[in-house]
Amino acid sequence: MKRIITLTVNNRPGVLNRITNLFSKRNYNIESITVGHTEIEGVSRITCAVNVENDSIIEQITKQLNKQIDVLKVTDISEQAMVARELALIKVLSTPNTRSEINAIIEPFRASIVDIGKDSLVIQITGESDKIEAFIELIKPYGIKELARTGTTAFPRGTQRTKDSTRNISIV
C-alpha cells in the first residue's frame, strides 16, 4: 500500500543523504521524494511516497526517521485529508494533424502546453499522481519523447473531518 510521509528537517548539509541512506539501509523503497524550503528559515520539508507491505513497516519507517537528529517532525498523512500534488512535464510528438486532438485531451485535465517545437510539444500537468498517470496513458499513443515527474509533495488540509466531529453532527 502507498503511504505518504512528510518530514520537517533542519536544512543542514548531509541531511537528505541521511534520510535516503536510512531508507536503503533499512531496505525500504522510496517511490518518490521531494524536498524544498518551508515558511521557517532553515527548515525544509521532505515528502516521501513509499510502498509498504504492512503497517508495522510504516511504523518502523516513521520511528527510524524520527530518531534522526535533524528530523524535527514526521507525519504519516496517508489517513488524513490532504492536498497532494505532483507536476509532470511531457514532451509529445505532434504533427499539425494531431495537435488539436492533443489539445482536446489536455483541456479536461487542466494541463497546459508550455512549449511548441517543430514536431513536438511540451505539456505541463499538475495534480494528484493518479490524475497524472491517467493523463500519461491517454497521451502515450501519440508518442512520448521525454517525461519528467517531480514526485508528490503534500500536506494535510487545514480542516480535518474527524470521526468525533461527524458524531457531534449526528447527535444534533
Binding site: P13, R18, N21
Partner: peptide, 13 residues
Amino acid sequence: LGITTPITKYNYQ
C-alpha cells in the same frame, strides 16, 4: 561524511 552517515548517530563537517 558520506561513508559514515549510516554508521554514526550523527556526523559533522
